[in-house]
Design a protein around this nucleic acid. Sequence first.
DNA 1: ACATTAAGTGATT
DNA 2: AATCACTTAATGT
Length: 210
Amino acid sequence: MSNDIAEIFPAFTDEELRQQITDECTIRRTSAGTTLMEMGQYVKSIPLITEGRVKVFREDDDGHELFLYYLEPGEGCAMSFACTLHNQTSQVKAVAMEDTEFISVPVGLIPDWMSKYKSWYRFVIETYQARFEELLSTPDSIAFQRMDERLISYLKKSSEVLETRVLKLPHQEIAYELNTSREVISRLLKKIEKDGFVSLGRNRIEPVDL
DNA sequence: ACATTAAGTGATT
DNA sequence: AATCACTTAATGT
């Protein structure tokens, strides 16, 4: 196990830290679609993803979602760091997109780790920095990009992240993620299909030339 | 064959 | 670009 940690989280160079993880933390597995965290819920442990993928987003009263970021193997959740440090409830919702395995770190350990282990401290800072930069791109895209451009970059990113040529997801899902309506997505997809950028099918979008 | 879910479309704001 | 109302098409049982 200690080897796996070193492999997936090479940043944890302190031997003692790795030992703490194996001794004090538990491995948890969830299946695709499971909600790991609801908005307003207290954060009692933070996840370090070892396998799979988790979507982190905000949700309003009408069920509209604002996508924030994905958690992938080797990553921890910036929001949960923030919550443990300020003892706040979660401002985000997290759902496993695939069967996911993660190390569950009890929050009680965090303050200690922050002061004791330099490599942990750096991991947290780097996680923050990476997310912050990523989050800046969201207001940019809303302010400066039209819907069709946002759709195209969404498709690009999805096919990269999922490592697949053919995206298997309904238009409605894309609409939720981009905060628009299903009809708009359908129409735009139809348009870019005509322009030869994608080929469409039921539950199937194949980028041809983005 | 039937119900369910995804996608397409026109009209309205 | 959003919403509504409705149609058409694909898919599961």
